[in-house]
Nucleic acid binder design. Structure first.
Lengths: 425, 425
DNA sequence: ACAGTTTCCCGTAAATGC
DNA sequence: TGCATTTACGGGAAACTG
């Protein structure tokens, strides 16, 4: 028996395949009440043992250690916990031996660490744990890792962060984007290589002046990218991580109407905004951003359509678009036009002149800013004549002169797009 | 023992209270996997029996009958199925008797029929069954009711339909609304009283030319009302059920800008639209509706805000609102203004002239129709100069003259609301 | 093939635990 | 008391089933 046991131990190679999980992008995170599959494979084939090897599944086998940790919890696998391994029969006329009661073998294989969550809202933190663990240790089951988690270097963290994008989209993070993230974690510096980042800084502590950690903020942006703006991200249209100072520096020398896309730094839930250059009445260069769009808003309208349709609505209900060129100089139609649904055409068939019943008029939502900054003399939006009551603050005026921009746009009989000032072709 | 049993039977009154369900508006519908409570109450108090009466719960007790029905299913109650009744102790010095082993009593109480569903999407049909059953029988457990469901009269159905609104909102259905619904079920007629409606007509068969039944259509509208436009419904602002012919008849004599709110007849999911009067270039009265708004769209913007902000966008990017008076003659601001969130004011604090960092510009969605019907000569929306590529149909022109309406609205230096033609004060 | 029915499970909200 | 964690369940989608 001992001879046989040794034979088996040296002959078999056990390979545990990564579990086919609930969340394909986030294996190793298991949610209570949700099914997952896991596969154990023998790399050596013994036809004689077909249907003779029984696998028994259990969770937290070594919970003697785990139980010592405060607040640890016992999990159970529902359903049957044993299966017989079935190899494909190979009917070559080999000798066969039948084992009725096979000797129990202790063949072990280890997964990377697994995190159990009870609600999907715990996924960001669970995944952060997986990342930090695998970034800093090869130990297969160091249950005490997070009782005193080691620090990582910026170089390690940067690689992991970029991989979060490159593994689920067609594009990782550029040096510029990573430098912006480094500054968020470590403050201003010229070289972040070798700088140390603690687990607390990465995932536990809230960022200065914010109600959420660095990782929660970033992971919500990853989610935003994957679910709402994947195509634009893959195209490289989203600069995304750029400080407001650098944004100003690169936009200021550009012609008015040049804009870039940037993630919100203040929103926990993941937001995206655009920032553009314009010239105000006095000819001074202004940098403007809109309040970031959230997932909620992007549900009803794609970001490409928002960009294409965004208008500033002046006092006389005239719309002009301040967005012309995606930085550095891509006409916005070239970049975003192909991601906009073509507009529904009016149903001309029914519009017979003599027909009494009109068809439904098609509508669309557009995103507008009622109060352009060039009217800073009149910051009260009630002046805009949008007809909305209830926002009256008392100092309204019924007389409102046309702005230079409005007059300018009225000069265009060629109405492709009413642009502010200097950019008409 | 028999004497005691008889005493008990005559002394106790068992009252089954309606179950406190998963869906408060829809009791008697039970969903698998979801908890519910049910209460059995004794109307006569015997302090001596306190904590002596044991209740045993079961489902489908008489499943001998049920099992005979094709496709019937067995359900189980999870968790404990027995409870001891506890009455509040009354410590008046009464005589007491202790019964160690109480005689089993067959005290029965019946609920109205119960429908079990496995997904909430089955709720509309489940509730329809409850309604039809209770409308037409008092039998507490006629398991075969739906093998040959009896017909109802329009009078019965009308009462039930109105009750669906009055029991969950502050307003039932008017005679006019009910007449519109009768016409959908029974076709045109002058008097629907006494007309017969089959269960199939009510809930099983699709309506003519539609992919859904009468009840599914109506129940989605009830859901729309409750979740999205409850306040407007309670105010009586929603005419809702009105035929397009009658709509035309009542709107035509009204001044341009008069509008009413009507449910979509073509959308399964529940939709609402507005219809208004306007005069076209030739002075002819036109009746216009927008494509109905769905729950999806109302998620991002309330219907009141859509109504207040709705604009027609002409070729020169000028916006005008065709909606002025809610039928018969309520100014729209009076009706809907109070249901619009006040607009966020620009964050003036940060707008110091010397400050380099501008605040975010506030944005809002507005709902527009790019191609007004008065421009029927130019049905191609590409002509609108909205700058959207990709909808080019080949016959575009770069020259587009200003419309009379546009010129008219430009004349208003008093810009409260640019209205079409005859209604400015 | 297909329509009625059930299962699966995310994501919001509420409840519970610590 | 406040935060962390779990439970509850609607609703969209996929899977199942007769």
């Amino acid at each position: 028996v001992d001879l046989f046991r040794n034979l088996m131990k040296s002959a078999f190679v056990v390979e545990r395949q990564p579990c086919m999980p609930m969340h394909p992008d986030r294996p190793l995170v298991i949610k209570t009440g949700v099914q997952f599959t896991n596969k154990v494979r023998l790399l050596v084939k013994f036809p004689e043992l077909n249907y003779q090897l029984k696998i028994k599944v259990c969770i937290d086998k070594e919970s003697g250690d785990v139980a010592a940790i405060r607040g640890s919890r016992k999990f159970n696998i529902l359903g049957t916990n044993t299966k017989v391994m079935n190899m494909e029969e190979s009917n070559n006329g080999s000798l066969s031996a039948e084992f009725k009661h096979l000797v129990t073998l202790q063949l072990a294989t280890h997964s990377l660490p697994v995190v159990v969550i009870s609600n999907i809202c715990q996924m960001p933190n669970a995944w952060a744990s997986i990342l930090w663990y695998n970034m800093l240790t090869n130990h297969p089951k160091n249950v005490n890792f997070f009782t005193k988690p080691p620090v990582g270097t910026w170089d390690q963290v940067a690689e992991v962060l970029s991989w979060q994008f490159s593994s689920t989209t067609k594009r990782g993070l550029t040096i510029e984007q990573l430098t912006t993230l480094a500054e968020k974690l470590l403050g201003p510096s010229v070289n972040y290589s070798g700088c140390q980042i603690t687990w607390a800084k990465f995932c536990k502590e809230n960022m200065a002046g914010k109600g959420f950690s660095f990782w929660v903020w970033l992971d919500n942006i990853i989610d935003l990218v994957k679910k709402y703006i994947l195509a634009l991200w893959n195209e490289g249209y989203i600069m995304g991580f750029i400080s407001k100072e650098r944004e100003r520096a690169i936009l200021s020398p550009k012609p008015p109407g040049t804009f870039l896309l940037r993630f919100s730094e203040s929103s926990k839930e993941g937001g995206i905004t655009f920032t553009w250059v314009e010239k105000d009445i006095s000819g001074k260069t202004q940098i403007q951003s809109v309040e970031p769009y959230t997932k909620q808003q992007l549900n009803s309208m794609s970001f490409a359509e928002i960009i294409m349709g965004y208008k500033i609505m002046d006092a006389t209900n005239i719309l002009v678009s301040p967005l012309v060129y995606l930085f550095p100089e891509i006409p916005k139609e070239d970049a975003f036009g192909k991601y906009c649904r073509p507009e529904a055409q009016p149903d001309v068939d029914f519009q017979e002149p003599g027909c009494a019943i009109q068809p439904y008029l098609k509508t669309k939502f557009i995103c507008v800013t009622p109060c352009p900054s060039v009217f800073m003399d009149f910051p009260d939006s009630e002046l805009l004549g949008n007809g909305f009551p209830g926002t009256n603050s008392g100092n309204t005026s019924d007389l409102f002169p046309m702005s230079p921009r409005t007059l300018d746009s009225l000069m265009h009989t060629e109405v492709q797009e009413a642009n502010p000032g200097p950019l008409e072709s």
